[in-house]
Design a protein around this nucleic acid. Structure first.
Lengths: 153, 153
DNA sequence: ATACTTGCAAATGATTTGCCAGTGT
DNA sequence: ACACTGGCAAATCATTTGCAAGTAT
């Protein structure tokens, strides 16, 4: 509901725009590249490179894992894609501007909570006040104890 | 300078105490195990498993990497050791209660800053207020843009 | 035509595991 | 003695890289 006070990232309105960004850089629109983009648009949340290569559980044609990594890197360098790490697992990729919530995870029970809107802004402001850094918590999440686990001991 | 208001973690007064913790669990004090502990006590900051295995650059006898990982895991399960991740590199290990500062890293220039005392408490409070989680930022660091890089674009 | 890209295999880096010989208690 | 450990090799997992063949522009 609240409008972000922060500069909105690239925020692509559609797949077409993403393809345009590629063209603008002299990069080619190969079927493998288009597939990665389609997977990210189709995904309901951040996905692993492996899931993209697997065609999102068969919903899309499968492709080569190495190429997927290469394309995700390329797209990330263009600002079209972002990747995050949750716990010790593989990286999770998503379109920049989508699924851009902060994450907070419990290192005991694994509970994960998304931080959005005002709450996200409040934490960001606190960090900026404390050390001057502008943090997003969307690459490496915040890790700590959820209320339940914190109470137990 | 400032004294922490928070409960001090396990905080082992000495190597002897750590060894006592091991004994109390029926675990043995092997030379390899003692070496890992000595390395952590001798380290000036968080170190990689590889550095421990290498005897901290030769200052201590070298040992087997797999055993170092096993011992670090054992010690971490006992609460004697903690490990953190900085960027995409290998994990960094330290004694619980030592080098327990929060970390904030810039994802552009790599600058890393330690968050201590009041600043650390302020961020922790903000996170708790926002989502109820008690976060330490010492496992996965906060990642964002340092003031310089944030200003550049 | 000519780069940019792909797909596949092999390489890397970090961490884990199987196993049997070695050793604290 | 006996169970816990260490050392070493081999296995995993995630990700990267080398290269020859393929293809968008």
């Amino acid at each position: 509901m609240t409008v972000s006070h922060h500069a909105v990232p690239v925020h692509l309105p559609s797949l077409v725009a993403a393809l345009g960004t590629l063209r603008a850089q002299g990069l080619r629109i190969s079927s493998a590249r288009r597939l990665v983009l389609e997977a990210l648009f189709a995904a309901e949340g951040p996905v692993t490179a492996d899931e993209v290569a697997g065609g999102l559980d068969g919903r899309l044609p499968a492709s080569d894992l190495a190429s997927v990594y290469r394309n995700l890197d390329t797209l990330e360098a263009l600002g079209v894609v972002r990747h995050v790490h949750v716990g010790h697992g593989p990286g999770l990729y998503a379109l920049a501007g989508r699924h851009e919530t902060g994450y907070v995870a419990c290192d005991r029970c694994g509970t994960r909570v998304a931080l959005e809107g005002d709450a996200l802004a409040a934490v960001g402001d606190a960090v900026r006040a404390a050390c001057g850094f502008a943090c997003a918590f969307d690459h490496f999440p915040l890790v700590g104890r959820c209320p339940d686990c914190a109470a137990e001991r």
